[in-house]
Design a protein around this nucleic acid. Structure first.
Length: 123
DNA sequence: AGTATGACTCATT
DNA sequence: AAATGAGCCATAC
């Protein structure tokens, strides 16, 4: 990893660290046209975290700035499980299509080709 | 303070 | 291959 670019802090049980902040920081690193999964983020932040909490962080991501590209986070099948939480729900798919994804039946086509794993990309 | 609830995932049946 | 159960842990009530 390049100098000055530090690895995102993992959860530290000894202090009250903001898990959400970690998640948002990672999500903001997702390059345009790429996507990742809840589980990948959870694993990157430490197995102590669960994918459910990543979803929770996304739910709260709408109220923070800078904005978090929550549309780039889908479940491990490339399915837009969180689209109903967007405003309006169609927005998630529209944003992804605008970034070059092809989506059918709420599922990103060729998902594996667009997958971005923070564990390997950020290391 | 205990229970319920997720934008999830994995192992087992 | 589809359904089920369990683990996950921070909020909400």
């Amino acid at each position: 990893m390049a100098a000055g670019q530090k690895k995102f802090p993992v959860n530290d049980p000894s202090k009250n660290y903001s898990f959400f902040q970690d998640v948002w920081d990672v999500v903001r690193q997702i390059p345009k046209g790429r996507v990742t999964t809840y589980g990948a983020i959870a694993r990157y932040l430490g197995t102590g975290s669960s994918a459910r909490m990543v979803g929770w962080a996304m739910n709260n991501s709408f109220i923070i700035k800078p904005a978090v590209p929550a549309q780039r986070v889908v479940n491990r099948n490339g399915m837009l499980t969180g689209k109903m939480h967007f405003n309006p729900p169609e927005r998630m798919q529209q944003l992804l299509e605008k970034e070059g994804m092809i989506i059918q039946n709420d599922t990103i086509q060729n998902f594996i080709d667009h997958f971005w794993d923070p564990a390997t990309e950020l290391s």
